[in-house]
């Protein structure tokens, strides 16, 4: 039945329909053992449904699914004992203490991690005797993470694990994910944050409208490693752009050059700047970010060339790029 192989999860032609809406329309992917696999996509794209089918929570209409060698549709207990799940919304009995909840859930598994170790891992050791209702939102979520890993899962599902976290807590969560991955666990991560996917995932798949529209390592997704770079700068107010050695176009109050050979163009521009004594104010070189690629892939039809521009974000999701500027507290 359940064969330990090199593949942790394999999905072939997965379909799921709710009434008139086909939420998942023929999705296929594989996740290797030990891999951190990111599932990206806007709300309603079908990623939660797909994950819930893998977890055995939801049935499917068509397709082949194997999770650690089992078909999750019949919810085999042996499978549930080997996976760990961290949901987006934390849900823990308010009247029990941290220790009680951890102990209770530990008893569901054949070989759980020690309760003290888990409390330590998620930074709740000092709160062990506090009732869940008294915990802050962030602490409750950390407890939820603790419940997800208490059974020593071989495969962990993390559903937007850092939504609502402050930057420090996010980095802490990332460290935990990395250490779980180093410990050999396979991780399937859904997220809205592109920097998170980039920081954690070995491979990502982008789901839009129920289908996978791109798949690959975050560094090369959508060909971003070979795509154009953008050079941006301003000139002092009394200078005209007509004397520049390369053609530019205006983007807001910035001048922009799009090129696949940024070394050459930079050389021309900086040479010109030094020779003419005109500074290139705020000079920057930007490659297509993962978020640019993501927005392009998930845009409903024509994105109108505003890819990556502020305000083009779906669902009011905070921009990954602005998150990069966040400075974690020392």
């Amino acid at each position: 039945m359940a064969e330990p192989g090199a593949t942790a999860v394999s999905v072939q032609g997965l379909r799921k329909r709710y009434g008139d809406l086909e939420a998942v329309r023929g999705v296929s992917f594989q996740v290797a053992r030990g891999e951190v696999f990111g599932l990206l996509g806007p709300n309603g794209a079908g990623k939660t449904t797909a994950v819930e089918i893998l977890e055995g929570f939801r049935g499917r209409d068509a397709g082949e699914v194997r999770v650690l060698g089992y078909d999750p549709a019949s919810r085999p207990r042996a499978l549930r004992e080997r996976i760990g799940i961290v949901l987006q919304e934390c849900a823990v009995e308010p009247y029990l203490t941290v220790r009680e909840v951890l102990r209770r859930n530990a008893s569901y598994y054949p070989a759980p991690r020690p309760v003290a170790e888990v409390a330590e891992l998620v930074g709740l050791a000092a709160m062990a005797d506090v009732k869940v209702a008294k915990l802050s939102g962030g602490q409750q979520r950390r407890l939820d993470v603790g419940l997800g890993i208490i059974g020593r899962p071989e495969l962990i599902f993390l559903d937007e694990p850092t939504t609502g976290f402050d930057p420090t807590a996010r980095r802490g969560a990332w460290d935990l994910v990395r250490s779980l991955s180093d410990g050999g666990a396979t991780i399937i991560l859904t997220t809205h944050y592109m920097d998170e996917a980039e920081a954690l995932a070995d491979r990502v798949a982008v789901i839009a409208r129920g289908q996978i529209v791109a798949e690959g390592p975050p560094s090369s997704l959508g060909g971003r490693d070979v795509s154009e770079a953008k050079l941006r700068f301003r000139l002092p107010e009394d200078c005209s752009s007509t004397s520049l050695p390369v053609p530019v176009h205006e983007v807001g109050d910035l001048l922009e050059v799009a090129t696949t050979d940024e070394v050459e163009v930079l050389h021309l521009l900086t040479g010109w700047s030094l020779a003419e004594g005109v500074p290139l104010l705020g000079l920057s070189v930007e490659r297509l970010t993962l978020e640019d690629v993501y927005l392009r892939l998930t845009a409903g039809g024509d994105a109108g060339g505003t890819v990556g521009a502020p305000g083009a974000l779906a669902d009011g999701v905070p921009a990954g790029r602005s998150a990069e500027r966040w400075t974690p507290a020392p």
Partner: peptide, 15 residues
């Protein structure tokens, strides 16, 4: 509270 006092190993249901 001292983290060291946080419970012993949670005994799994066995048998």
């Amino acid at each position: 509270m001292d983290p060291g006092t946080v419970s012993a190993i949670a005994a799994p249901a066995s048998g």
